[in-house]
Amino acid sequence: MNLLNLIKTYRYFLLIILFDLVITIFHPDTGLTIFKYTAGNFAEMLAIIPPIFLLLGLLDVWVPRETIIRYLGEGSGLKGIVLSIVLGAAAAGPLYGAFPVAAVMAKKGTKYSNIIIFLCSWSTLKIPMFLFEMSALGVKFALTRWLVNVPGILAIAYIIDRLIGAEDKAEFYRRQTANP
């Protein structure tokens, strides 16, 4: 029964692995490369994700909701916007690391538009990446991209905030709060 549940929970993952196995039978080289990359992805994820979830657990327990609301919630205004950009830009690592962080921010009462700003900043404004981009593609390229991105992110967040209805937002917040 327990195994059955496990299989059900991981059914999509298992389907992909099955697909990989079929490929391995017909094209061993390609299949093995897929497995090599998949294993590498898991190794990378396992390296970066544990401290993120550990920090999120601590944040959840120690930081009062009122504090987050004051800095990032409704009525946090410009301060909240700037802070959301800074938090996203200070991060590193792939975008999937931002999702659980955003979830806890939502749980603690961060304003919806600020969550989207944080998400977009994480995706494209990361400072460590910016430094690397500068050395590879030049100061002009990296700086232009960064500076154009800031208003672009604000516009994207504004549009999403407007287009997502109150009902969907409530559902989003309800889901994060329902999680442990």
């Binding site: 994700i49 544990p50 979830f53 550990l54 920090l55 999120l56 657990g57 601590l58 959840d60 327990v61 120690w62 659980p100 979830a103 806890v104 999680n179 442990p180």
Partner: peptide
Amino acid sequence: ALMKGWKAF
């Protein structure tokens, strides 16, 4: 906190 982190993961 540890339990919450683990559960979320």
